[in-house]
Simulated scan of single mutants.
Amino acid sequence: MKEITVKELKKLKDEGADFQLIDVREPNEAEIAAIDGELIPMNSVPQNVEKFSKDKQVVVHCRSGKRSGDVISWLEANHGYENLYNLKGGILAWADEIDPNMMKY
């Protein structure tokens, strides 16, 4: 599985790169802390596969990287995706390395 670090993600955001950021956490988690990803909770991914682009880099994240990794593995195995990147360490890594003022949970 391909991964991207929070520093690499910040660079993509800062440069205005054309990529998709998807958050697979639950809505209540996104209310606590968010990095502007499109919210598609893990349990709704099978009904929302078409929302994941196949034409550009897609970064998938969750709290720590476990759920997003599971989502990526499922999409790759069942839908042939090859452009998905797991955010290493998830939003916790973002809070630790990029935004220390972000609330952690």
Rank of each mutant, 00 (worst) to 15 (best):
L12V: 12
K2C: 11
D96L: 15
R63Y: 14
D70P: 15
L9Q: 03
P100I: 03
D70E: 15
E29D: 04
N48E: 10
V45N: 00
A95T: 05
G37E: 06
K104A: 13
S44T: 15
D23N: 07
I35F: 10
V45Y: 00
D36P: 14
V45I: 02
F52K: 02
E29K: 01
D23M: 02
E76Q: 14
L84M: 04
L9T: 02
A95E: 08
D18R: 09
G80N: 14
L12C: 13
V71Y: 03
F52G: 01
L9P: 03
E50K: 15
E82Y: 14
L84A: 01
A33S: 06
S73A: 10
D99I: 01
G16F: 07
P27H: 03
A95R: 09
F52M: 08
R63H: 15
I91P: 08
V24A: 13
G80I: 13
E97A: 11
G89F: 13
E26W: 09
N28Y: 13
M42D: 11
E3C: 11
G69I: 05
V58L: 00
K51S: 12
A95Y: 05
T5R: 02
M1Y: 05
W74N: 07
V71R: 03
A77K: 09
V71P: 06
A33F: 04
D36V: 12
V6G: 10
N83I: 06
I98F: 09
V49E: 10
L39P: 06
A17S: 12
V60K: 01
P100S: 00
E50F: 14
N43V: 15
I72L: 07
R67H: 12
G90M: 10
D55R: 08
A34G: 12
M103T: 13
Y105N: 14
G37S: 10
M102Y: 00
S44W: 14
L84P: 04
A17Q: 10
C62H: 00
I98P: 11
W74C: 05
W74P: 05
L87C: 06
A93N: 08
V45D: 00
K56H: 10
L12K: 08
I91D: 12
E8R: 00
K7G: 01
N48M: 13
L12N: 12
V45Q: 01
E38Y: 07
V49M: 08
P41C: 10
K7V: 05
V6N: 06
V60Y: 05
V6H: 07
K104C: 14
A93L: 11
M102C: 04
K54G: 07
P46K: 04
G89Y: 11
L39D: 09
N48R: 02
V60A: 03
V58E: 01
V24I: 13
I32P: 01
V60H: 04
S53C: 08
A33I: 01
I22C: 03
K51Y: 07
E97Y: 06
G80M: 13
